[in-house]
Design a protein around this nucleic acid. Structure first.
Lengths: 191, 191
DNA sequence: GTCTATACGGTGATAGAC
DNA sequence: GTCTATCACCGTATAGAC
């Protein structure tokens, strides 16, 4: 008598897929990997998610919605502190999980992605760009953020820049570089 | 009577591997893809490069050396213009080839990369960070670049940020976003 | 140097029993 | 819902003829 709409197994599959994709990308994880983690056989996953693309879309959608909620719940004493807190979400993901942002990982795989998954990637960055640009505009109203910045332009640079810093710092085994990049971004945005 | 050390076929294979990897990553291209482009069979590639890892290492090394040469040959009237010219190399690659920087692509695949290839990725970013940091320090001496910036920190943010912007802008089919990000970087670095 | 043939493992996906 | 069994690929890599 489950009350939740998605069963425990479906949620476990989603979670496992998310972690694996954040580590190894869309082409770097398999149904068999997920099955082994969840404790079922790979054929059983198709019952919950018909295709790999379906699983990836569901995972990405869930990830985006969760991140949007978390971002909207962030509180800080100023716009730049809010941006810093947002960036710290990325820092924490890399430090605690050793994984990248799912949006960034899928962006890297974009050229080999099923169309439906790529559509989700577009929605992901749309949502993040909007959130950051909104914070920036408010900070400009209070005079805290440089007025000569184009909020939309900086938002794109900031989000995609964090993705790149995350990716590269992990690749060269210098995870602290991500934090350095974040701090530099914050330094530059202040009026 | 070839005078070059690497034969025409070896060079053609290297070139094809480079283009394919810049588009689809290490796991996204196969010996069969390269073979089809070069006009031989996939088994023949092993004669020139014993394993896929060997081919990738050779490709990455060649890419790094070439990029270092190109960067060192860049001329500009100021440090920020030099950084802009450097960034325009990335813009041109995305616009003309539709491909990413090989360093960035391999960074994204880092977790599934053979060790020797990953070592090359580290060398790649070492070299790029050094080049950019050097330009920045010179610009700070002339007073053109913000003196309160840490050259090494900005170099890391700039290079890895460009990689991310390149990756994301391609993924969301907004290639012009890369140029926007580059211009914002340049704007922020000026004193 | 390049070929054909092949070994061998991994992949997503399906059919049908339970 | 999950299983076993199986399929039709595709991947790297090797052996040996030419």
């Amino acid at each position: 008598m489950s009350v939740t709409q998605t069963g425990d197994k479906a949620a476990a599959i989603l979670n496992s897929a998310r972690v694996l994709m954040m580590e190894r990308g869309y082409n770097g994880f398999s149904f068999r990997d997920v099955a082994a983690e969840v404790g079922i056989k790979s054929a059983s996953i198709h019952y919950h998610y018909a295709t790999k693309a379906d699983l990836a879309v569901a995972t990405a959608k869930d990830y985006r919605e969760t991140l949007c909620e978390v971002a909207n719940d962030l509180t800080a004493s100023s716009a730049s502190m809010l941006l810093s807190a947002y960036g710290t979400l990325f820092v924490a993901t890399l430090r605690d999980q050793g994984g990248l942002c799912l949006g960034g990982v899928l962006a890297a795989d974009a050229e080999t992605l099923p169309e439906q998954v790529r559509t989700e990637v577009i929605e992901f960055f749309d949502s993040q760009y909007k959130w950051v640009a909104n914070v920036l505009r408010k900070g400009q109203e209070t005079g805290e953020i440089r007025a000569d910045l184009d909020a939309e332009a900086f938002a794109k640079m900031f989000v995609s820049g964090l993705e790149g810093a995350m990716m590269v710092s992990r690749a060269i085994s210098q995870p602290d570089d991500l934090e350095v990049a974040l701090e530099t971004f914050i330094q530059l945005v202040r009026a």
